[in-house]
């Protein structure tokens, strides 16, 4: 994303949040449709569980609505701030999981209808990627998802993770290497057996 458009989007989000706080009923819907799908995608990929990801998304958005009347300069754009909240909520849940029984990544149901080879291949790739992501340490997983799946720029990731841009670059590079190793175990599911 270009810096200018990112800034434009951020200021539009801030204006929508101010309009929401001022009682504009349309502003909440518009802002929700801009931010919630991104938060949901991050949570699904971090947690590998749709029900938990929905809870995290709802909670992160709830906190955004609550802070709206007091939103002045929180030091971040509304979407970045909500990403940070969601990242922390995901981390909390992953830590809680480790203290309890480990949870297998949610598996999409098999689609065995005839003629769905391409769809099945796509689902197998998604499962393989989710399983490989689950092997990454949390911070690397967050950085890889935000950079390579959510397409966020490094300075924004630095704000979300509250680290320097250089640290983000290092984290994403290490995360990508770890992911490549983890994915190597799933070459067949990825359709890479023939070296394609």
């Amino acid at each position: 994303m270009k810096a200018d458009s990112a800034r434009g989007t951020s200021s539009e989000d801030a204006a929508l949040l101010a309009a929401y706080a001022a009682g504009d009923p349309q502003a909440a819907r518009t802002l929700m449709l801009r931010i919630a799908p991104r938060i949901h995608a991050l949570a699904v990929r971090m947690l590998g569980d749709r029900a938990e990801a929905e809870d995290v998304t709802q909670e992160a958005m709830l906190r955004l609505w609550k802070i709206a009347p007091d939103w002045r300069d929180m030091g971040a754009a509304p979407a970045t701030w909500t990403y940070r909240v969601a990242a922390n909520l995901c981390t909390d849940r992953l830590r809680r999981r480790r203290r309890q029984a480990p949870l297998e990544p949610e598996m999409e149901p098999e689609d065995d209808r005839p003629g769905n080879e391409a769809r099945m291949q796509g689902a197998a790739r998604a499962r393989a990627l989710q399983a490989a992501l689950a092997e990454l340490p949390e911070r690397q997983r967050l950085a890889v998802i935000l950079r390579h799946l959510e397409g966020r720029p490094n300075p924004e990731i630095a704000e979300i993770l509250e680290i320097s841009v250089e640290a983000v670059e290092s984290l994403t590079a290490r995360g990508k290497r770890t992911l490549a190793k983890a994915l190597a175990k799933h070459r067949e599911a990825l359709g890479l057996i023939d070296g394609t």
């Binding site: 929401y20 958005m61 709830l62």
Partner: peptide
């Protein structure tokens, strides 16, 4: 949630 928490 947004409607419930929206200031008047």
């Amino acid at each position: 949630d947004a409607a419930r928490l929206q200031p008047a």
